[in-house]
Simulated assay, not measured.
Amino acid sequence: MQVPEIFWTFATIGLGPFVGSFIGLLTLRLPAERPWAASRSACDGCGRKLGPLDLVPIASFVALRGRCRSCGATIPRRYLLLELACLGIGAWSALAFAGPIALATAVFGWWLLLLAVIDAEHFWLPDMLTLPLGAVGFAASLLVLHEPVWTPVLGAAIGFGTLWLLAFAYERVRGRQGLGGGDPRLLGAIGAWTGWSALPSVVVWAGLAGISVALAQLILRRQVATDTRLPFGTFLAIGAWLTWLLGPLHGLFG
Rank of each mutant, 00 (worst) to 15 (best):
W111I: 02
V153P: 00
W36N: 01
S212V: 14
R176A: 08
F253T: 14
A189P: 01
A63C: 01
V19L: 10
P132W: 10
A156W: 05
C71E: 14
A209K: 03
R222Y: 12
R221V: 09
V202Q: 07
K49I: 12
L186K: 11
G247Y: 11
V173Q: 12
G72Q: 02
C71W: 10
F232K: 00
C46T: 08
V153Y: 01
H250C: 05
R65P: 06
L199C: 08
T228L: 14
V202W: 05
R78W: 01
F138I: 04
E121K: 10
G159H: 12
L113T: 15
V202A: 08
R185V: 15
D127K: 05
V173W: 10
L218H: 00
L246Q: 10
L80P: 02
F253A: 14
S39D: 13
L84T: 09
G188E: 06
A240W: 04
V224S: 11
I75G: 09
S212Q: 02
A225M: 01
L166M: 14
G134I: 12
W111D: 01
R172L: 15
G181C: 00
S41L: 13
G134T: 09
R67S: 11
A192D: 04
A167G: 15
D44E: 15
W244C: 01
I238K: 00
H122G: 12
G188A: 13
S70K: 14
D227T: 15
E121L: 14
D44H: 06
C71V: 12
F160C: 06
E171M: 08
W241F: 13
A135D: 01
L245P: 12
W205V: 09
D44K: 03
L131Y: 09
F108L: 15
V56F: 09
L28K: 01
F168H: 12
A240M: 10
V144P: 02
G175N: 05
A37W: 07
A104C: 10
G207A: 11
V107F: 07
W244N: 01
T234H: 03
I158E: 15
G180W: 11
G175K: 02
A240N: 11
L242S: 05
T130V: 12
I75A: 09
F10V: 15
F10D: 05
I101V: 14
A169P: 03
L165N: 10
T12D: 06
F235L: 14
W244M: 08
A225Q: 10
L236E: 07
